[in-house]
Amino acid sequence: MGSIDGWPQIGTEVIMSRSELRAGGSGANAALAMRHLGQPAHLISAVGNDDFGTWLGTQFHQLRSDFQVCPVPSTVSVGIMHADGERNFFTTQGHLEHLSPGYALEQLPPAACPGSIVLFTGVFLLPALRRDYPYLMNTVASLGYQVALDTGWPSDNWNADNRAEFATWLPLCDHLLINELEALSITDTSNLDSAIAALSAGLKPGATLVVKTGPRGAIGVQNNELIEHASETAAIFDTIGAGDSFNAGYLAARLQGASLPQALSTGCRAAVAILTRFPRHTIVPGEFASVLTHG
């Protein structure tokens, strides 16, 4: 919903010009972005046992999806867009807290081909999974997949405990996909170059760090080579899912054998193509397949 110029006085009513009810969450956003790009994807997640859960289960046609039905109301998130392009999320706990490691692994077959990728995302909204993240990442790797991770933002912020926990995940990643604020907060620094250097040093050999820098584009580091890609400018009202759309474009390009510069470019173009469309439910599956054409 949006947009607003500032927080209103408590107890008042605000009329907003735009809204859209849609399936959301970082995993769903990335899977739907893959569909927009005409690429296959397999979404493993959960739904609540209520009307919203039933509705959610119908939103991923032309994608493979497996949902654990949890005996609780569905998680609901309201995104409020601000006139300056920033946003806030108000999210209930709901079904996401109940997605179990056992269910997730039961739905995941061995990798069908070399280079297949599993994206872990929404870490801090999935406490039952989060407890077993190192085990899950190692198991996924043993099934023949590369591991991609987008941490998201912890509701209790990047404190010392969350940084220590992240340090156990970092060396297990083949692709770490975070935004600029997350990079600075994880490393507890105000200097992006220092943050990139610290994160890169913790990755295993050959792994890739990607830092999404919003409308400026993205920075990638692999094998000590740093690549910056500037994104094209566009008028965007709804920035929700920007990083997830980038993730889909970047990972889809990598799955096709693209180099790091090509994948950064594809990620940026995918985000711009998807975010400039409002409402999003009008996007036809495969409409943005041309985004994946790279030199």
Rank of each mutant, 00 (worst) to 15 (best):
A195I: 00
E106H: 15
A41N: 11
T282E: 09
N191P: 02
P101S: 01
F67H: 08
F166W: 15
V221F: 06
W7V: 11
S19L: 13
A242F: 03
H82D: 05
H61F: 12
W7S: 13
L105K: 02
V78P: 01
T208V: 09
L255P: 04
L260C: 03
V14I: 14
I186M: 10
G144K: 00
Y250D: 06
Y145C: 02
G25C: 04
D238V: 04
L63M: 05
S3P: 10
A235T: 15
A198D: 08
G48R: 01
W153P: 06
G214R: 14
T151A: 09
D156F: 14
Y135T: 10
S155L: 09
P73I: 04
A164C: 14
G249C: 02
R277Q: 15
S19H: 15
V47I: 13
P279Y: 03
S142W: 08
Q9D: 13
N224G: 12
V69Y: 01
V47T: 08
F288K: 00
I186P: 01
A104F: 10
G57W: 03
V123S: 14
W153F: 13
G122C: 08
C268A: 10
F124P: 04
T91C: 11
S26W: 13
S190R: 12
G38H: 06
T276G: 00
G144Y: 00
L126P: 00
N88D: 11
G38S: 01
S194W: 02
Q62F: 11
L56H: 03
E20F: 12
L21W: 11
Y250T: 12
T189H: 01
G27Q: 10
V140C: 10
